[in-house]
Amino acid sequence: MAYFLFRRTLGFVLTLLAVSVVVFAVMNVLPGDPALTILGMDASDDALAALREQLGLNAPLVTRYFSWVWNALQGDFGLSHSFRVPVSELIAERLPMTISLAVAGMLVTLVLALSLGITAAAQHRRAGDWGVMFLSQLGIAVPAFWLSILLVMLFAVKLRWLPPGGFAGWSDPVAAIRSLILPTVALALVQSAVLARVTRSSALEVMRQDFVRTARASGLSQRRVLWRHVLPNALVPIVTIVGMQFAALVTGTIVIENVFYLPGLGRLIFQSIANRDLPTVQALVMLFAAIVVTANFVVDLLYVVIDPRLKART
């Protein structure tokens, strides 16, 4: 058990390091001269030299990499070129928005996908099953941003029930929740399409096992058998997919924030691209990639929590 934890943690740290090397290399080696990328071709030599000095570009690459990582570990991502404030401040300011959206999206996804998947499995080869499978096939093919546009056209433009976009912060919770509803639904519908399928097939597999018959023979209701006996046993593949979907969730929040003009990290990253603000883009890409890697690491650890047999084996 301890050895398993040690190996996984080591692997996690190494992956994070490798990710940081890739991000640093793409952002600093590929452009040749980042200062030139930021300021453009017609910048004066003086301005370029000043910016090189400010970004620490005169030091060797390896030194720059290590100081970037070292500072980042202490929460210092450098100075945003376009906003003229520390990148960490920008992130702190926008992070709550992104986290609200991601958490809400994930929760709704889980509720939707698990109920649809379990329902489909319980209704195997009957109408409910076909319905869920059809919807999920469709959900996989529908781009989140198009679904968002359709939702806005229906609920904001036509029915005027909900705002079409924007977010004014949590000071007015009702308004905040209202402006989060459409983005959350758009994010969750697309995410849950894949997850519902996985839930269904995993649950079907479990339902064939003997202990399900034992549970039924104990007089448990079908509902209880499904949710308390089948679902926990079906969870391992589901959790795997949830972990892998974090990549999609990160992508999803970036896209959705841009569709609904939500002032989160995803919106910030696009503003930074437009402003050629390399330090900010670099910090944000690293942050998003780290979230994906961390999610996969957490999933690895979750297996052990879910399945007591693994604890004995590892």
Partner: peptide, 25 residues
């Protein structure tokens, strides 16, 4: 295989964002 694992840390969008920041979209 380790490299492949590493690749999974970058959704297409993140990679495109990096390239766009450096070379323009």
């Amino acid at each position: 295989m380790r490299l492949a694992d590493l690749g999974f840390a970058f959704p297409a969008l993140l990679f495109a964002i990096m390239l766009a920041a450096v070379f323009g979209p």
